Amino acid sequence: MSPTNLHCQTPLKKVDVLSQYLPGRDVYLKMESSQVTGSFKMRGIGCRARKAVENGCTHLLSCSGGNAGLATAEAARLLSVPCTVVVPQTTTQRMISRIQEKGATVIRHGDNFNTAQRKAFELVNEIKGSVYVSPYDHPDIWEGCTTVVRELSLEMPERPAVIVASVGGGGLLTGILDGLKEVGWQDVPVLAMETYGAHCFNLSMKASQIVAMEKITSIATSLGARTVTEGLMERVPHFKVMSEVVEDKAAVQSCLKFAELENVVVEPACGATLAALYSGILSRLDSEHRIPPGPAVLIVCGGTGVTLDQLQTWATQLQ
């Protein structure tokens, strides 16, 4: 019998010092970095993996050299099934080792995600009983991510004025929107943050249709989907979604500020969310009266693919 949830309920922290960046408002951090794998990915991937195993899957397959691959490996370990993760050649040995420590088999193939994904699709056809676990593009992924809003609805002392989250392929944001509808918060604005060079959602929002990026140039590789899921774009017109983009420099600097404040290292993908506060974007939206009265909630999505030394090196290079 598989466990009901493979993720944990994460802390919600009211951080008074952050109100200096958004005067007159309380600022809350939803610490998804506290998940066992260090990122929100355990919510969606845990749900997808659990349902797959309940429906007869005997082998989980993933294509990700980052947090999604790590989450799939952890889900397989908890569900007691084998796992294979296909990663591109560019994946760091540090992340490969972390995935292997969960008991998964790692296959290096190709020099980018698309090539590695094609290999994963081949393996699904070759390995009997296997299921491919997408990093973001599946209804079960979105269902798992709704749980972050369910928790907020029970933890928050009042309705949030805005929820801030990073968006890559769109799994988290799609789940957040579904969660808002579920708890009766459909009118709560959501600020979706990206970095330039990984801003396919922002481009899609401007075009009112899915836009594919030719290549990812941002260092925030966890945001590195060339397109967002169709499920997200179908939902956007029914919610108050704002899209903003920051430079890599702002994302990295925000990670370093956060490490100093909370003693937690997160990836630049998460730094994009933090930059909404540190770089004054939320303050500007407030002054433009695009945010109603009340507290701001930042989803600290986490990520374990970087070290403090790497962040400091990037900060020097991006000066």
Results as ranks from 00 to 15, higher is better:
259 A>K: 12
248 D>W: 05
204 S>M: 08
259 A>P: 11
219 I>A: 02
268 P>L: 03
276 A>Q: 06
266 V>Y: 08
283 S>H: 14
268 P>W: 00
256 L>E: 05
239 F>K: 00
220 A>H: 01
253 Q>Y: 12
254 S>A: 09
255 C>E: 10
268 P>D: 03
229 T>Q: 15
242 M>W: 11
271 G>P: 01
279 S>F: 03
267 E>C: 02
255 C>M: 04
256 L>C: 08
262 E>G: 02
230 E>L: 15
265 V>H: 06
207 A>Y: 10
203 L>P: 09
239 F>E: 02
255 C>A: 03
230 E>F: 07
279 S>D: 06
270 C>L: 15
281 I>T: 00
207 A>P: 13
200 C>Y: 08
212 A>G: 10
221 T>Q: 13
246 V>S: 03
273 T>R: 04
238 H>A: 02
265 V>M: 07
213 M>E: 12
252 V>I: 03
202 N>M: 05
272 A>L: 10
234 E>R: 08
224 G>K: 00
222 S>G: 13
224 G>Q: 04
227 T>Y: 03
242 M>H: 15
223 L>V: 07
203 L>W: 05
249 K>A: 02
260 E>P: 05
263 N>P: 10
282 L>H: 05
230 E>W: 11
276 A>K: 11
254 S>R: 06
247 E>T: 01
259 A>Q: 13
228 V>H: 10
212 A>C: 14
272 A>C: 02
219 I>E: 08
230 E>S: 14
213 M>V: 14
204 S>K: 01
210 I>P: 02
247 E>M: 12
242 M>Y: 10
263 N>R: 11
283 S>N: 15
229 T>H: 06
275 A>Q: 01
201 F>Y: 11
279 S>I: 07
243 S>G: 09
221 T>D: 15
222 S>E: 07
234 E>A: 13
283 S>I: 09
270 C>V: 00
224 G>S: 01
